[in-house]
Design a binder for these strands. Sequence first.
DNA 1: TGTAGTTTGCGTTAATTATACGCAAATATA
DNA 2: TATATTTGCGTATAATTAACGCAAACTACA
Lengths: 230, 230
Amino acid sequence: MENLQNIRIAVDAIVFGYKNNNLYVLLIEQKFGSADKYWALPGGLVKNDESLSDAVIRELHEETNVQLTFMEQLYTFGDDIYRDSRNRVISVAYYALVDASNLEIKADTDAEKVQWFKIDEIPALAFDHNLILKSAIARLKSKLTYEPIGFDLLPEEFLFSDLENLYCTILEKEIDRRNFRKKILSYGFLDQTEHFSPIKSGRPAKLFKFNDLKYNELIKKGFHFEIKFA
Amino acid sequence: MENLQNIRIAVDAIVFGYKNNNLYVLLIEQKFGSADKYWALPGGLVKNDESLSDAVIRELHEETNVQLTFMEQLYTFGDDIYRDSRNRVISVAYYALVDASNLEIKADTDAEKVQWFKIDEIPALAFDHNLILKSAIARLKSKLTYEPIGFDLLPEEFLFSDLENLYCTILEKEIDRRNFRKKILSYGFLDQTEHFSPIKSGRPAKLFKFNDLKYNELIKKGFHFEIKFA
DNA sequence: TGTAGTTTGCGTTAATTATACGCAAATATA
DNA sequence: TATATTTGCGTATAATTAACGCAAACTACA
């Protein structure tokens, strides 16, 4: 009756990037057989002596060269026993963000292909990765409204209009530019730099910076970040 | 170089109950050696052919006789490689709620002891279970403010004052009774029953019921539950 | 040099929501 | 019948959100 446990444990990463009014996800091409190619989330089996988060970092490092600005555990997928047809595998999924200015660097390590995909142009993925991705997008959307993680998707210094557009496109909502700016600025965790960005047209815009110290000060005082839309 | 994965996967459950202005957690007594006894969260290893949530349900059924009203995955604890000193074990933690009217029924299955503990009288637990519990309490508190799970801790029919007290005690905040009532009632998902509760003193109070159908209707219309306090 | 087009940055006002209370109704108990 | 207690409904004020107006600062082009 007593049977040895024969379940593998893997980690998968959903890495989000943002550029030019588009949310991107990092996918790698997985080769099973000779003709059997599938895009999949980066990930792999956890080693015996490494922590879960270390495993994610290692896998990402092995397969890509992205520099994360944020990472958090998403969910553990283990209710579908046959999510991997070969073995019982439970996957602990992490989602992560990368700075938009680092988004162009694509690493094609060896034969493995790595590519950024627009969120609305995702192909059929391996395993239950479409499901996992869907869940990550939902979490990203939700988290964006109650924690200042949007800044992790932008370069160190950014335009207010970039932040606006980021919120608009990811949350798929209209927002009033002026009220949005007023609200964010009222929090007081943004520093205005002396730099201006190369302009395309219109009035030159100041660049802003997210100030972690100020943010943490506010948190200690009981501050609670929140962005709501109608 | 290629080593076989030797990691066990377990589930643990944090079961919350509420009664008489107190939040309770269900613990079981774990026996390691002869004298080595520890209270611990109910849980155990996942079987090869069962889903994670089934494993939680099974373990709870084996060790206790609680009837859950709510269950959700909390977090997967696997960053501390030595959280179990005997083997590498990764634990997927679930938290769950039980109806207050079922809280008295304690099952002492065989030699194993099961007991409800007040949240502020928790002993030193086995493994990293104190940490897990802490994380579950944080989640419960947070979830209570943006989803109507408080009702899952109360009997089918409850007094408004019970609901008030539940929020006050779990969130450790003062609230204005009248504003709280106004707000909750304004949502329109509570049904007033014709029953009255046995009174101790004061004006007799009507019993209320949470109406899932009405709540789901609201959700479909874009409603968003929220309870905030100053 | 001037005009049109564009984007930024700062305001103002109305609508909604939250907060802070007041107080009578309905009961048990003394 | 008076007192203590808890419920249930209301109202005034403060705070926040939503909806808009508009000038400033630039580019591009005639």
